[in-house]
Nucleic acid binder design. Sequence first.
DNA 1: CGTGCGACTGAAAAGGCTTGCAGAATGATC
DNA 2: GATCATTCTGCAAGCCTTTTCAGTCGCACG
Lengths: 349, 349
Amino acid sequence: MAVTIRDVAKAAGVSISTVSRALAAPDKVNEATRLRVQTTADAMGYRPNRAARGLITGRTGNIGLIVPDLENPFFGSVSKGVQSRAREAGYAVFVADTDETPAMEAEAVRSLATQVDGIVMCSARSSDDAVRRFAGEVPLVLINRRLERIPSVTFDNGGGLRAVLRHLVALGHRRIAYAAGPVTSWSNSERSQVFAAFGHESSDLELVELGNFAPYFSGGIEAGDVVIASGVTAVVAFNDLMAVGLVDRLRQRGYSVPDDISVAGIDNVPVATHVWPHLTTVDFPRIAIGRASVDMLLDIVLGRTEHSHRVPDVAVELVIRQSTGVAPTTARAPSPHHTRTQPTTASRQ
Amino acid sequence: MAVTIRDVAKAAGVSISTVSRALAAPDKVNEATRLRVQTTADAMGYRPNRAARGLITGRTGNIGLIVPDLENPFFGSVSKGVQSRAREAGYAVFVADTDETPAMEAEAVRSLATQVDGIVMCSARSSDDAVRRFAGEVPLVLINRRLERIPSVTFDNGGGLRAVLRHLVALGHRRIAYAAGPVTSWSNSERSQVFAAFGHESSDLELVELGNFAPYFSGGIEAGDVVIASGVTAVVAFNDLMAVGLVDRLRQRGYSVPDDISVAGIDNVPVATHVWPHLTTVDFPRIAIGRASVDMLLDIVLGRTEHSHRVPDVAVELVIRQSTGVAPTTARAPSPHHTRTQPTTASRQ
DNA sequence: CGTGCGACTGAAAAGGCTTGCAGAATGATC
DNA sequence: GATCATTCTGCAAGCCTTTTCAGTCGCACG
């Protein structure tokens, strides 16, 4: 059915070895024959069978990408970055969605391990030990999780969160909540620590951690009531999705954002500017991160690992928008509905 | 490095053929040996090399998924559906993101064709001829595009749009716009036709098509000004993302949704309920669609194609929320800012 | 005890490709 | 014209499985 190297060889009147070389190692073959082979190959629509090639070279030309949730725009962006860099490098990419469960991560690694040259794993939900085991099976690069001696690309989680907190403090907030994400999330635990430690920067600050909540809109809805009950004037959510849910719930309950309560997210996913008020958040260059992870993986796979195994935290950026404002003087009770004057800021994207 | 069937054979004291059979065709081998082989294979962590297997069986156990934009939540959901069904059936999936360009679709098909058993192609942007050519290269199932003699799963585009239009008419709207999506999009052209044809259902209706606009938030921003200039009282956008951009732009320009202008989207992606007002839209069961497409592809690949080549349009559902309302009596000029009383509707998801 | 049968098992080919090695052809040198 | 160095090119092995085909073995039956 498909045209094989043998067919091309016959058509071009050369041996299969010559065809193989003409296509893969152009300088080891006479220019004239090379051209002839190339032409007939193109004419016949020949495409080398990568499985067969992989069998002998030991490399598949594929990489795997494992993410917790493809519906989450954060991972969509990362996937896009991984995609594009991989394609440039001539690699195809397997994607596996694990529904945020460690079990499926293990399964994905097992089933992918044999047919890829390496795996990029995003926001791994598995235990440290499990992740180490994965790395033993197949070249592995972690995104958004740091683990001793495992290559990873991470971003400055702590710096981002601190920037948000300083911003809120500058606006006069003194009682601030962190709406935590999944317990199994490495970045959640890092943020949680940074949040707790922030109390030392300035005293007279009351920091309360709430949750954990699911890293979705629904988690934000749930968090909304808890935030209200906690009596804070500002809340930072684990991610933008949760922040958006929070804002929605607060409005439902009759609270105005940011007049009664300020809300900030983390991630700067597109939805952050789709909602009103536009979300104050922390921007991660997600596509760049995806691309960087592929570069790192290829460095390892191709054995050109000169540089360190860990990309320094990529810089993050506090993006101040309309969901955070000065702390209310009297707070607490639902304010009457009032529309603020329309900011004229153009929306991003 | 990796443990091969030969290693297992040696360890279990049998031939490689026996190992192969023990694992793949349990009834063709003595129960005792089967157990012994199974055990040692497990103990050694043997995983058959799928490339080698594919070489001989002609099947790879992989399928390809091609989508225009992974960052678009619509395709994220579809991917998730494809994912989960494929995994259940023991298939791994390659994903390719084409950045909405026909050229990349062709490239993706070419590079995937040799290493998958079939491809699911979502919202193909290529010409009919090109798509036909793809289908000639590899078993292909189309999502969201109908093409004579090519298997596809589509949804009732026309019915969805008509439902929205009837809804708007019932609310008293007489001048209604359709903000069109990409020219290369099949569903856009179908919607465009349905929209134009709708004029016949009731007379005294003024239907204007605007665009084309990009199927993103940014496209909606652009569309917003055009909509205002057109003087309509209601607009249906090509998709939710565009509708959200539209709403944002209208608010920026001082128009209230739905008091001055009603806006409806199509797709019911999560963001539809993340924004305020929640978007009136048409719901597609995206995950189910993804799953169905895999079923269909496998039917073809495995040669069990009893049923027709085309899944009947899957049902869609009009979801009425807060972005559409009764037509304004005097319309046109930006209304003063006024907040409507808060609906108490619970948000979905 | 010889024959035949069934149930298992093993040898070997095949699948498409890369690559080390040897052979052929070409050209240059003496 | 013969020799030798250079390119090129072809042969064949090998990558890991599956699967056909033939063979072994034990056992029941005559």
